[in-house]
Design a protein around this nucleic acid. Structure first.
Lengths: 221, 221
DNA sequence: CAAAATCCTGACCAATTGGTCAACATTACG
DNA sequence: CGTAATGTTGACCAATTGGTCAGGATTTTG
């Protein structure tokens, strides 16, 4: 499915076979594009910037992706799965607190290991999600509705303190993605980022304190 | 201080006095500029867009602010105070839990009442804070260091659960600003924003549950 | 009311940028 | 090896955009 999707974007793939060079160059381009788009946004990025960072000329890059928008779309698609996976893994059969803790863990890891992807989506959504709006109201909404129902069940059966599942999910997103999206600010204030182990541990431990204490079922009658 | 600062930006203010028309037009321009910059970022915004939204021609706008960057700077400056005020109001003499609760309140109100300002700063910081970096390492760091020290004292004296003050502040920022910055996503998932009273109350109540339970001092052994 | 100051605009310019294309270079393959 | 397919590039184009300017319109002020 991804394979065929990409065929529509990368023009060079109107060739009979997907050649070795195509595979290599397209990946190089998308890597470079992720860096540039996640820093400057769609309009702020230029094809030349991406081409330079990918070590090729502009017309050469445009041989692989005919339009700027095609590059952008391809980067978003390639990154989308990574973005959704952590929530997908939330298991309705597991222990509520551990599940949510594990979810926070995965999200914070993603912010550390792939901050560019986080910033790419942040920029896209900040600007009104012109490209991703379908994903938001479709794929993402389905997933969130489903997982929110799981959390709601945990609350109803008393295995979690009463809390709105949607807003709980928002809080997890907000707090974890913050470390990627506002990295510049974090660095200015802490003198480092969560790429530094000490800061990572402090962030994780704060998250755990907050969420575990925050949503553990209240003991007592 | 603000007055004189602005003189450097708005060219028309090389006139002998600040005229009525200058005051009016400059405000109109900055309002329009906030809308446009907070949606498209600095590079994505065009002077024409701002001029159109301000109901004037491009050369006319450029009569008041000679360069695009001047408009951007002026908008950032005008909004900066609002951005810092909520944290400044955190009172070291108050009750820790109430103070933090009140802080969260103010921040969420700001996200509701001035989402454009929040998105403007978010875009600026996401892109590496090319303009604001001095503010981050200067004014903001001073303020945050000071308030973090206050919170640290609360922790040390056992009036707050042990938690890293910096990361606690980050969590407050993240969760409250999320509703402004990711409004598009919230709308896609909830069918509304915190401008709707129901959603606002749900968000606030979730925040309170999380933070109050999360950082209340653990009842004794 | 008239001169001075301020305000406004159409026309224009140079730089940037997305995208094309013909011609040449390289690679794959029978 | 030779030819067909694929890859690469300099030169170029049209649209967008930041910014200028001369001159006319309006407002302020004595």
């Amino acid at each position: 499915m991804h394979e065929t999707d990409q065929q529509y974007l990368s023009r060079a793939s109107l060739t009979k076979k997907r050649t070795r060079i195509q595979a290599e160059k397209e990946e190089t381009i998308l890597d470079a594009a992720l860096e540039v788009f996640s820093t400057f946004g769609f309009r702020g990025a230029t094809i030349d910037q991406i081409a330079t960072r990918a070590g090729m000329t502009k017309p050469n890059l445009l041989y692989y992706f005919r339009r700027k928008r095609d590059i952008y779309l391809a980067v978003l698609r390639r990154t989308l799965d990574n973005w959704l996976t952590p929530l997908e893994a939330l298991d309705s059969e597991g222990d509520p607190l551990s599940e949510i803790q594990a979810y926070i863990n995965r999200k914070l890891e993603m912010s550390r290991d792939n901050p560019l992807a986080s910033r790419l989506f942040a920029l896209e959504i900040l600007q009104g999600a012109p490209i991703l709006s379908d994903v938001l109201t479709g794929q993402l909404k389905l997933l969130v509705d489903q997982k929110a129902a799981v959390i709601q069940r945990w609350v109803t059966t008393g295995r979690l303190a009463p809390i709105d599942p949607y807003h709980l999910i928002f809080m997890v997103w907000a707090t974890t993605q913050h470390y990627a999206d506002f990295e510049t600010q974090i660095r200015a204030l802490l003198g480092g980022t969560i790429a530094d182990e000490g800061h990572y541990d402090a962030a994780l431990s704060t998250l755990n304190t907050l969420f575990v204490n925050g949503i553990a079922p209240q003991s007592g009658p």
